[in-house]
């Protein structure tokens, strides 16, 4: 198991100039990132859609590396996105998935079949050319350069400690530093895209 923040810290050293969609790791990523204009901390526009959003972005920006930190709850809800990603095969997409086994933001209830799911096998079966399953920080640190050094799409299932939130949504601290649309506008300005 890894702490999300520690895993993201290791990734950040290898980030380069990648566009990062931190997904459910957003509250940790905004504390670490040194290139917020290349970040899309969207929070949760609608559950299950991050992988498709990242696919669209990767197809739109073939010369930019796009890194997504998805979650297992999102992947379970939107599993049908995996074959589409595999078919379109964007060489610039790196699909990390945080697996803590639970719906952490609703109090920690287990996701379906949490104990025996093999997400990397699912991704492989859907046609991802490279998949990984990593359950500790040392292995992640040892493999991250290899993961990012190959063409995508690459899928990486990461075992993460549950860091459960059990407060009503309106009582939670707001970690976002800008709105979703401002984050998109900042990235577009950084890349010279007319919004």
């Amino acid at each position: 198991m890894m702490k999300t923040a520690e895993m993201l810290e290791v990734f950040n050293r290898q980030r380069g100039d990648a566009i990062v969609i931190p997904g459910r790791g957003g509250r940790f990523w905004v504390e670490l990132s040194e290139q917020p204009e290349r970040d899309l901390p969207l929070g949760d526009p609608a559950m299950g859609g991050h992988a498709s959003f990242a696919l669209g972005l990767a197809l739109a920006l073939p010369n930019q590396r796009v890194v997504l930190f998805d979650s297992e709850g999102d992947v379970l809800m939107g599993m049908g996105a995996l074959p589409t990603i595999a078919e379109k095969a964007p060489a610039n997409l790196y699909h990390f998935m945080l697996d803590n086994g639970v719906y952490a933001t609703t109090g920690g209830q287990p996701v379906p079949n949490a104990d025996t799911m093999a997400y990397e096998t699912v991704a492989q079966g859907c046609g991802y050319p490279a998949t990984y399953a990593i359950d500790n920080l040392e292995d992640f640190a040892n493999q991250i350069e290899e993961i990012l050094g190959q063409p995508g799409p690459v899928f990486v299932a990461l075992k993460i400690d549950p860091e459960i939130i059990n407060e009503p949504i309106n009582n939670r601290p707001q970690w976002q530093r800008k709105t979703r649309n401002q984050a998109v506008a900042d990235m577009q300005a950084e890349l010279g895209i007319g919004g």
């Binding site: 899309l40 991050h50 498709s52 959003f53 990242a54 669209g56 990767a58 739109a60 920006l61 939107g78």
Partner: peptide, 9 residues
């Protein structure tokens, strides 16, 4: 969501 990503890009 795919269209949102394409449009953002």
């Amino acid at each position: 969501s795919t269209a949102a990503g394409l449009a953002a890009g």
